[in-house]
């Protein structure tokens, strides 16, 4: 570990942006569950670690009734413990709970998960199907972009120099809407997704799909939306042929690689299976919700 590395713990977004903007080798430190092992392995060599966890806004969860605001560094353990988020976005909360162990859950966050830009990250597919917006602060002020536009490739983001994700905004889903997230890992816990699949489904009063979103992780350089699957669902009951179409469309939408965690053929096939199951699970939840509303 670098002895020369400095640690800074700003308490405001402005301070953090200043620190990061004034030094190209400064790095954001939120969970650092990936960064610290990388630094120990000798790469990168940051000059200063800017800890975002003491900035209140970055660790807060709030709702104004129509929109949830979740600080980008909020530990996923807190997200999983939040009843409002769990009711509104069960799949996104499940995805949040899948990041590593309880120990990691104390440190992992949506902001870190998204900004780390790993194609296999668990929460981005769910953030995307829920149309989350990222509020980004930087030297030029704040801007709000769809979460889908943050990661641009493995390890690459659209964040400019000195920019950090401050918080996420999620609109309260309409009635009869729910999401689900499934991932495939070999050993139940403590793994990187070989395939991840998120789905969100809105049902109409007859139980047919009024709106749908399907997104896949770990099967392409960035999260893949599956418009063909979404189209196949609209207007149909989320069952039978429609689900088969989801599976086929999801497999077809993938652009995976062979690596130590999976093969192209395996990822392609399982992406379809998980997408189908995630849609089915989301629809089931939406149906249950419909009964309540």
């Amino acid at each position: 570990m670098l002895t020369a590395m400095r640690y800074a713990s700003p308490t405001t977004v402005a301070e953090a942006v200043d620190l990061l903007g004034s030094d190209p080798d400064a790095r954001v430190y939120a969970g650092a569950t990936d960064l610290i092992p990388q630094i120990r392995a000798g790469r990168p060599e940051p000059t200063v670690m800017v800890d975002l966890k003491r900035i209140e806004r970055l660790c807060a969860i709030s709702s104004n009734g129509s929109t949830y605001t979740v600080g980008a560094a909020t530990p996923t353990a807190d997200i999983c413990a939040d009843a409002g988020l769990t009711a509104a976005f069960p799949g996104l909360v499940e995805a949040s709970g899948l990041i590593g162990s309880d120990q990691i859950q104390s440190r992992s966050s949506w902001g870190g998960n998204l900004a780390n830009a790993s194609p296999a990250a668990d929460t981005p597919p769910s953030l995307i199907v829920n149309e989350a917006r990222a509020v980004i602060a930087g030297p030029g002020g704040e801007r709000t972009v769809p979460a889908a536009e943050v990661a641009t490739g493995p390890g690459a983001t659209s964040l400019g120099p000195g920019e950090i994700i401050v918080e996420f905004e999620l609109d309260q889903p309409p009635a009869r809407t729910a999401d689900a997230y499934l991932r495939l890992i070999p050993r139940t816990e403590m793994d990187i997704a070989v395939v991840g699949a998120a789905a969100r489904v809105t049902l109409d009063a007859d139980g047919n799909v009024a709106a749908a979103a399907v997104a896949l992780g770990a099967v392409a350089p960035t999260v893949v939306r599956v418009p063909d699957a979404e189209a196949a669902l609209i207007g149909n009951e989320p069952a039978g042929d429609a689900l088969a179409a989801v599976q086929a469309a999801a497999s077809a939408a993938t652009n995976p690689i062979d690596d130590k965690r999976g093969t192209v053929a395996y990822r392609r096939q399982v992406a379809g299976v998980l997408a189908r199951r995630a849609v089915s699970m989301a629809a089931e939840r939406a149906r249950e919700q419909g009964g309540q509303s």
């Binding site: 640690y7 650092a32 092992p37 120990q103 990691i104 104390s106 440190r107 403590m190």
Partner: peptide, 21 residues
């Protein structure tokens, strides 16, 4: 952060102390 042998609790949160500065 993969083995938990360094687990501690800091301000009420369980964490791997190898992943904290």
């Amino acid at each position: 952060g993969d083995c938990g042998a360094c687990s501690i609790v800091m301000d009420g949160r369980l964490l791997c102390s190898c992943l904290a500065l």
